[in-house]
């Protein structure tokens, strides 16, 4: 597998030379492989959103380079727009960008800008609507009549319809109820599995990252603090807590149990895995002590 995005020594400064000058990214380097599902976490103001807006050239790096699909984004003669079709970016609260009369037209905005023919656009709109679970009846209604969750899905479909190689989502589930959260995130996961598109998901919820991502990028104070597989990152739970981030609730419980002296693995971050570990422990205990006590 090859690197789809490679970031080299990327730095970005907001308002250079002004009194409110802030370094949003400080010498950031990493690479994302094609087909990965990368979760990006970090506390507010750690540079997550700035980082992802660099992925399709909305911000010009103060220094450093970004390669998408092997091409240097800011090299002479590169067409920035072609990168925008390669990297689909879904912003925070994307429902505020809807503007067309009908949802179908809004979803078609991206593909239309790509200069595709009508048949192809219709196919893509239909497919994107299916991925995000939008009824055909909804597509002919005005986006402003829909509920918040539905609007959000229309906006995400609008980016999916561009069929990018990388789909970047900035907190796609923010402000939704638990059910809406799960629906949207599992739809994204299903989309990832079906199309093989690389997904970068920014989220505040450790549970969500643990459940859906296979790699995690931890941002802290404009730098990359960790970048590893989910298991390895959550195995460093104490460090995460030190960075002011939480770990999934299961991991927290297991961390406490370990401190109590129980011999359990440290990288437990999903409920099914936790159940398996507890069951194994339980069986060992049954075999050894004949079930004298169950802690």
């Amino acid at each position: 597998m090859s690197d789809i995005i490679r970031v080299e020594h990327l730095s970005y400064v907001y308002n250079p030379g002004m009194p409110d000058e802030t370094k949003a990214l400080d010498d950031v380097s990493f690479a994302i492989q094609e087909g990965d599902f990368v979760g990006v976490i970090g506390s507010t103001g750690s540079g997550k959103s700035t980082l992802i807006s660099h992925f399709n050239g909305l911000n010009r790096p103060t220094s450093g380079k970004i390669f998408v699909d092997g091409r240097d984004m800011w090299a002479q003669g590169e067409d920035l727009r072609s990168f925008r079709f390669l990297v689909g970016l879904v912003f925070q609260y994307p429902e505020y960008q809807l503007f067309e009369e009908t949802c179908a037209k809004d979803i078609a905005f991206g593909p239309k800008n790509m200069g595709l023919d009508d048949a192809e656009i219709t196919r893509r709109v239909k497919e994107a609507a299916e991925f995000t679970g939008l009824d055909a009846a909804l597509l002919e209604r005005s986006p402003f009549e829909l509920s918040g969750g539905q609007k959000r899905r229309v906006a995400i479909a609008g980016v999916m319809a561009m069929e990018p190689r990388i789909l970047v989502l900035d907190e796609p589930a923010a402000g939704l109820d638990p059910e809406g959260r799960d629906t949207i995130l599992s739809q994204i996961k299903a989309y990832h599995e079906k199309t093989g598109v690389t997904v970068v998901l920014v989220s505040h919820s450790m549970e969500d990252i643990a459940k859906y991502a296979n790699r995690v990028l931890v941002m802290h104070h404009a730098k990359v603090a960790m970048y590893d597989t989910v298991e390895n990152v959550f195995a460093r739970a104490p460090e995460l807590l030190e960075l002011g981030l939480s770990v999934p609730q299961v991991t927290q419980i297991f961390l406490k149990l370990r401190q109590k002296g129980l011999d359990i693995p440290i990288d437990v971050y999903t409920v099914p895995y936790a159940v398996k570990v507890i069951r194994r422990l339980w069986q060992e205990k049954q075999r050894k002590g004949g079930g004298s006590n169950a802690s």
């Binding site: 912003f91 505020y96 960008q97 800008n113 609008g158």
Partner: peptide, 13 residues
């Protein structure tokens, strides 16, 4: 600026 970025990300010129 946010809306402009969002539409630019969808290829608006």
């Amino acid at each position: 600026e946010k809306i402009m970025n969002a539409q630019k990300a969808r290829g608006a010129q």
